[in-house]
Nucleic acid binder design. Sequence first.
DNA 1: AATCAGATTGGCAGCGCTGCCAAACCCTGT
DNA 2: ACAGGGTTTGGCAGCGCTGCCAATCTGATT
Lengths: 338, 338
Amino acid sequence: MNVHEPERRLVTLSDVARAAGVGESTVSRVLRNQGSFSKRTQDRVAEAVARLGYVPNRLAGMLAGSGSTAGAKLVGIIIPSLTNIVFPDLLRGANAALDRDGFQSVIGVSDYDPEREEALIGALLSWRPAGLIVTGLEHTAGALARLRASGIRIVEMIDTDGDGLDIVVGFSNRGVGCDSARHLLARGYRRIGYVGHDITRDLRAAKRLAGFRETLRAAGHPLAETEIAPGPSSAAAGRAALGRLVARRPDLDAVYFSNDDMALGGYFHCLAEGVAVPGRLALFGFNALDIAAAMPQPLTTIRTPRLEIGAVAVERLAADGPAETVDLGYELIAGATA
Amino acid sequence: MNVHEPERRLVTLSDVARAAGVGESTVSRVLRNQGSFSKRTQDRVAEAVARLGYVPNRLAGMLAGSGSTAGAKLVGIIIPSLTNIVFPDLLRGANAALDRDGFQSVIGVSDYDPEREEALIGALLSWRPAGLIVTGLEHTAGALARLRASGIRIVEMIDTDGDGLDIVVGFSNRGVGCDSARHLLARGYRRIGYVGHDITRDLRAAKRLAGFRETLRAAGHPLAETEIAPGPSSAAAGRAALGRLVARRPDLDAVYFSNDDMALGGYFHCLAEGVAVPGRLALFGFNALDIAAAMPQPLTTIRTPRLEIGAVAVERLAADGPAETVDLGYELIAGATA
DNA sequence: AATCAGATTGGCAGCGCTGCCAAACCCTGT
DNA sequence: ACAGGGTTTGGCAGCGCTGCCAATCTGATT
């Protein structure tokens, strides 16, 4: 591009200062609207900025401002996946709060891999953010060490079942499992199965299952059977997995799914095979996706405060309160499938 | 946090140099694995880095390296929304390529608002990225000016119907509309309706509709009726909108949806109301979401190369080929609903 | 032992901005 | 005309790193 221009250096703050006939620090003050300056100066700077098309260099700004109060207006966010709409929702919630406070974010995706998460933590820390938002409470020893050594605020989001490093924002996944089980038991279901996706990677799903399983056992109706689909959760995986599960255990009267995607697939299986829902088989999901509410029979599921989690995470980062755990709870949506 | 430590300065490169007993530039070379150094030096540096827990400061690195070849390993990405799974998919595709080339990304979400996009362009440019990936070909005059003045590579993704600034990666949305219409006509449908979401904001959806409409008219079977749901696309919106459409025009034999989310909602409407698909009403979507393939009757739709678009966008940014348009095409998926 | 190309290394000047501080300026009131 | 307090301004030293270049070292060759 622009082969002709010999060496187009970008416009710098000192170019603006020269053009406006003022000092560099004056321009800096005007641009950040900080300190005092006269209206006349402000106008001259604004004019010069517009005329030259000046774009401030944040790298230089943050570097120079590091160590001071106003310094870092940046937060790093690490999520495990972009495939599941849940995580974009968290980002959305965070984004809104971020904008309001004038922050920017750098995002990393760990693919549910703890090693990769550790690497990402290093990468994001190298931007010298004001804080870091990570997913879940489980991290490698190396990751924990880096987080601690960073000296910045850390938010661990989504899960409150365990000890956090600093701030924790989420809900009890164990509790979700327990309440889901109680609901099914209360409705009279007794031969209950589980359809999930890879539990060794999605630790929150594993906690839900643990709570679910224990509640059933305590009630004297232990979990009858489980079917774990390989790979990430999806409607296709849920449909296939439910098919396998009922083939093996035709006597089941209810199935708990690792999330709504999987449950939706299960519902499709039932529609395709003419299995009456919930008469013959009840279905219970997790997450309360919009789509689950639009089904002919709204899915029975648990609504999680995804947007709020993102928003509160950012809010707590910006404030400087004490380390604490914020439980945002969840809500059981009694749909028509269980 | 850490009230006790008087003034914990973070470890810098020169601390590492001192600890390893070598010069700063040597440490820099070793860390970037660039230039030449002995094995012994490498080990000593690695040891010091590990011992001190050194985290490089990218801000300083990028600032110092600016203007040179290796400088900016950063790209900015602007997408209109995180609500629709399509955009996270683009990010996913981009992410993979980004990782491979050692790039990082900064992401902005415009909410389909051109003004906001312009502001985001400014914000992202202030990070001095090596390139910027934006969505679509339509931008405000101010945005175009900034992009041109930036002097960096620009990729406009998703849409190829129009002139790009530099690199364009996507497919023809007009073409999608045309081919969708042709498919419905070939299957014998004649009284065709359209269900969409806010067209004034989603310009790509508008282009698809335009192509669709023209093809129908040219064939002598003009679009019979349209129903536009307010707000963003969703299954719930699609379900409600199809309900309104068929109430108004019970004679329709096929409906084209702005995307799969809406179409899925339409399908739910048909299931709930006992409308035979495709016997009584045919449904046609767009995007080929995984979920649409898991339906009892797979949705007839158009598969778009979302992951590839993200990947190719990054690839072209990194390479320095000529300005050009890369058409990645699309594929009609003949499902069971049309 | 002297020579030379190539490998390895360190010093130091910026990159563009902000924080700090002293200087200049502007009003009052005397 | 001059002091006193606030307001506005400019100069300049870094922030932590990289690029450049000169210095040093290595081993092989003559």
